[in-house]
Design a binder for these strands. Structure first.
Length: 112
DNA sequence: AATTTGACGAAGC
DNA sequence: GGCTTCGCCAAAT
């Protein structure tokens, strides 16, 4: 298992209830800014054996990225259960629910 | 070992 | 706002 993969798993497991993270965010936190696709792979392959809250992961537009209708519906259900409002299309308000790695004083860094 | 793939993201049209 | 192209790199084949 590559360090990147391990970090991604760890990050996903650390997502609090009622919040969501984007693939890009996770990849960035894991160390690869362009690793969103690896996050996809990891989630797809590893959510099964790990206990990953995959339903708290959405794409950059705040939409449910999943393609399977049933799984998509399930994700919407879980998010609603946790208090995340989702549209019928399955998109959430990232500005409200996006989990951000806080700097402590609320200072927001647009880039790094 | 080589090639394809993929629940994505940003940039370009 | 939508569609296409390119980049990215681990996992699957």
């Amino acid at each position: 298992m590559q360090p990147f993969t391990h970090r991604v798993i760890n990050i996903i497991k650390a997502i609090p209830e009622g919040t969501v993270m984007t693939y890009g965010q996770i990849a960035e936190q894991a160390g690869s800014r362009r690793g969103a696709r690896q996050v996809v792979r990891i989630l797809h392959s590893l959510s099964d054996i790990h206990q990953l809250p995959w339903h708290r992961v959405v794409n950059a537009k705040g939409e449910i990225a999943i393609r399977d209708e049933e799984a998509r519906d399930m994700q919407v259900f879980y998010l609603n259960q946790e208090g995340v409002e989702t549209s019928e299309d399955g998109h959430v308000d990232l500005d409200k629910y996006r989990h951000r790695c806080e700097a402590g004083d609320g200072h927001f860094y647009p880039f790094e």
